[in-house]
C-alpha cells in the first residue's frame, strides 16, 4: 500500500486518506462568465504529469495539498492548505438578505 506524508500526522498508509479532487482556484462567481464557471465545476484537467490535489487525513479530518506525478504516482510533496490560502475570502455583500 502506498504511503503519504500528512503535514499534521506524518507518514501514513494511503488508506487513511480521502482524495479531495484537483486543486484549482475558484473564479469569482459573480464576475466570471458562464463557460468559465461551468469549466470550473464540471471540467477536470486530469493532467498527465505533475498535479496538485486536495487530500484529507480521515482520522483527523485534516485537509492539505499534495503535489503528485500522475504518471509515476510519486508524491513530490505535501503541504498545509495555509501555504496557498492565508487570507479571508469574501464574496460581494448580501443584497437585502432576510
Amino acid at each position: 500500500m502506498k504511503q503519504m506524508n500528512c503535514p499534521l500526522n506524518g507518514l501514513r498508509n494511503i488508506s487513511e486518506f480521502i482524495y479531495g479532487g484537483e486543486y484549482h482556484p475558484m473564479p469569482d462567481p459573480q464576475q466570471c462568465d458562464k463557460r468559465e464557471w461551468v469549466e470550473h465545476v464540471f471540467f477536470h484537467e486530469n493532467a498527465a504529469g505533475e498535479v496538485t490535489e486536495w487530500w484529507c487525513h480521515s482520522a483527523t479530518s485534516y485537509w492539505f495539498l499534495a503535489r503528485r506525478n500522475s504518471i509515476t504516482d510519486e508524491i513530490i510533496e505535501t503541504f498545509p492548505a495555509s501555504k496557498l490560502f492565508n487570507k479571508r475570502v469574501d464574496f460581494s455583500a448580501a443584497q437585502g438578505e432576510s
Binding site: A81, F85, K87, R88, V89
Partner: peptide, 14 residues
Amino acid sequence: VYQSMLKWNAQWCL
C-alpha cells in the same frame, strides 16, 4: 458534510 465544511474553510479562512 463535516469534512466538506472544513475543506471550504481551509480556503475561506473564516
